[in-house]
Write a protein that binds this DNA or RNA. Sequence first.
DNA 1: CCCGCAATTTAGAATTGTTCTAAATCTTGA
DNA 2: TCAAGATTTAGAACAATTCTAAATTGCGGG
Lengths: 142, 142
Amino acid sequence: MKARSHHEDEQHLTEQLGATGLRLTPQRQQVYDVLRHKRDHPTAEEVFIRAKKTMPEISHATVYNCLDALVKSGLARQVTLDRGATRYCPNMHEHGHFHCDACGTVFDVDLPAQAMPLPKGFKAEHFDIAIHGVCPDCDQKK
Amino acid sequence: MKARSHHEDEQHLTEQLGATGLRLTPQRQQVYDVLRHKRDHPTAEEVFIRAKKTMPEISHATVYNCLDALVKSGLARQVTLDRGATRYCPNMHEHGHFHCDACGTVFDVDLPAQAMPLPKGFKAEHFDIAIHGVCPDCDQKK
DNA sequence: CCCGCAATTTAGAATTGTTCTAAATCTTGA
DNA sequence: TCAAGATTTAGAACAATTCTAAATTGCGGG
């Protein structure tokens, strides 16, 4: 994981958002910071709660707006598992998500960069790989 | 796709449910029939509407219960894409789901049976592969 | 064959997650 | 400085799912 200075970070955000026709606002900065600060795949609600700690006036709708903006600009990914709330992940490196059925934790897992062969004519834009199972910790505790 | 007689079908259902400690009820049969009849990855709501055509008294909660029962027993799979409602798929053959961003259709796509290497200690139970892109039809129309 | 228990279903309320609305605020470029 | 467009806000509205308590069903034992 390459570290990035605050300034570089801001510039990166501005660029990526700009390319999608969006602005960098304090709220979007804040939501992005929340995602980067604790990469535990929080739900929109969790992001809302964390963001409020340093930006108490931020609203629910804004968090959804910001998350959507980040996703559209390629700064974050949605992670959907089961029927629960959608989670968000700022790791844009190619990876999948391992969900531990015992403790609920979601882990990023590297994937072999393999071409996924699709039937003729299908144009893939994006892959989402979710794996369900038991993580090492929970497996041992059994 | 191997055809199955109604009788064989019922026996298969009874067995699979039984192995999970569940009974085969008329409602579960009906929900399963709905899934098998039109394999377009319906949401719980859509299953509810279709099931009511031949079983008008069936309730919302029962449809969720039946779908859960089928999933637990390995007779159907959940398909979660984006933030929308969860969809259901009676195809238990190993496959992934291609979602066309243009027309919204969900296609079953065969996957190469490849071992997905996981970090040490992780025990995988189940893989879910979702692919976003454009289907051949929509790609041509552009 | 009937009984009682546990599983299941039911209607509807409650909860949770997400989107919408209209008004206020902020930017940006002319 | 101003107008136009983007963004944020609070709260209502909507959608998806789960819960609840009561009624029904169906199997195993007597």
